[in-house]
């Protein structure tokens, strides 16, 4: 097959921010250019070397619990992760993903169907994951998030409009 496929990396429940990037490998400790090499260093040491841009992470319940460290998802962004699909997300981490513009989907049924090592084709705008002849729809984000993702991130939205999504319209 000539077209470029993306790999599924499947993880379990309760993947915490110390799993995603251990505190001792914070950019603050090892430097801004190095830290992404330690993504999942304890849990899955081969990950950072083997992952390819566009690959998709799949997780169970409460993905990203723990610390507010944005450098954990920042490491995933630097590695080019295309999306994270989980049964549910922890709150601070979900906001961080949104702020960095990493598409995050809460899709419990899909999590059950995707296996580690699956090769898929996926585009965020299309909202569909293709695996061979099969295709799976991703849930549509709420309006607020859609406004944000359309501009790229909350930061990009604020820079452009000097206000937060919905601000003014809300009150």
């Amino acid at each position: 097959m000539s077209e470029c496929l993306q790999r599924i990396w499947r993880f379990g429940d309760s993947i915490n921010t110390d799993d995603i990037l251990p505190g001792k490998y914070a950019p603050f400790m090892v430097g801004e250019t190095e830290f992404q090499r330690y993504a999942f260093a304890h849990l899955r040491p081969e990950f950072a070397a083997d992952v390819r841009p566009g690959d998709i992470l799949v997780g169970g319940r409460n993905w990203g619990l723990g610390s507010s460290r944005e450098y954990a998802p920042q490491a995933l962004k630097k590695l080019g992760i295309g999306a994270i699909i989980a049964k549910s997300f922890a709150r601070i981490h979900y906001r961080n993903l949104l702020n960095l513009g990493i598409p995050a989907f809460e899709a419990p049924e899909l999590v059950e169907l995707l296996q580690d090592g699956d090769n898929v084709r996926y585009e965020w705008a299309e909202g569909i994951v293709h695996r061979g002849a099969e295709s799976f729809s991703l849930p549509k984000p709420p309006l607020f998030l859609h406004e944000v993702l359309a501009e790229g991130s909350v930061l990009a939205y604020y820079k452009k409009y000097k206000k937060f999504p919905g601000e003014g319209r809300l009150s």
Binding site: Y71, P73, N96, V154, F164
Partner: peptide, 15 residues
Amino acid sequence: GATDIALAVASGRTW
């Protein structure tokens, strides 16, 4: 996270 915090510092607000 850092981006939310930076926006709060810059704007004096958050959502």
